[in-house]
Design a protein around this nucleic acid. Structure first.
Lengths: 141, 141
DNA sequence: GATATCGGTCAACCTGATTGACCAGTCACC
DNA sequence: GGTGACTGGTCAATCAGGTTGACCGATATC
């Protein structure tokens, strides 16, 4: 009997720590693994709405807002009004944000490749598939 | 490019939620998925030291202490002095704790089996192996 | 006996989220 | 073209599940 939840948590922590260190070495000690999803999913030209970003990362908009606040405070993104809807704001990368995003992308890619090497291509693919299944199919008891 | 850390986090959350609901249905709404490891690893006859439990779950002793505090407050465990070492205390299951532990074991087993069914035996085994590798081999960049 | 280590605890803090309330802008419809 | 419902963003409070650091008394080591 294995405690799968614990295993998942620890594996995540190990990878996140790894990514964190890599980002620090690349000159972004303040970019946290959690920011990755945002950097990866914010629209490069027009920007993205907080609500959309939240939905894409399966977070509440409040949680996403906290991340955006954080990154805005550090100068990686800024909020601009959405010309198409006066209620909305668009989150856009600053120049600094674009550099960080690129580095972040590289860090993730590098981690991916290291992971692939460690597990072997097939196990890696299986891992990804399995995780997707666990996420999407779960919820119904 | 996949954000593996996010995937792991979400998969864990999905499973934890599932386990949580199952435990609630079994009559233990206050037993959290995190308690599982403790219930599974505390020595049934003589009890276990907090330090040992922490090490076994790869947690700090402070974190384990908080869990023990919690479970003690709910009447699932109690601390008794260790006759072999006056510094130490032994965490022991109460009668209520033993019943809860048994139910918890069943819930985990059931979750394991459902997961196995969803992923298929081979993918499930691969998943477990992969996670172990990620946990143990990580840390060295 | 002095000193280092070990088991447990207190305190402060961090991360990554949650729920609930609220406001202003927009949309649909009559 | 006014009314009511919905949507996007925000504030506030809270939570879970950890972390690091300091500390104390008991024990082991020399």
């Amino acid at each position: 009997m294995t405690d799968l939840t614990r295993l998942l948590l620890e594996a995540r922590r190990a990878l996140a720590t790894d990514l964190d260190e890599d980002l620090a070495e690349r000159g972004y000690p303040d970019v946290r693994p959690g920011h990755a999803a945002l950097f990866l999913s914010v629209d490069r030209r027009s920007g993205s709405r907080i609500t959309d970003l939240a939905e894409g990362s399966r977070l509440t908009k409040q949680a996403m807002m906290a991340m955006v606040d954080d990154l805005e405070g550090r100068g990686y993104v800024r909020r601009v009004p959405d010309p198409a809807d006066a209620r909305a704001k668009l989150v856009r990368l600053t120049a600094r944000g674009r550099r960080a995003a690129a580095e972040c992308r590289r860090a993730i890619q590098s981690l991916d490749q290291r992971t692939k090497r460690r597990l072997g291509e097939r196990s890696y693919d299986t891992l990804l598939e399995s995780l997707e299944i666990l996420i999407t199919e779960d919820g119904e008891i």
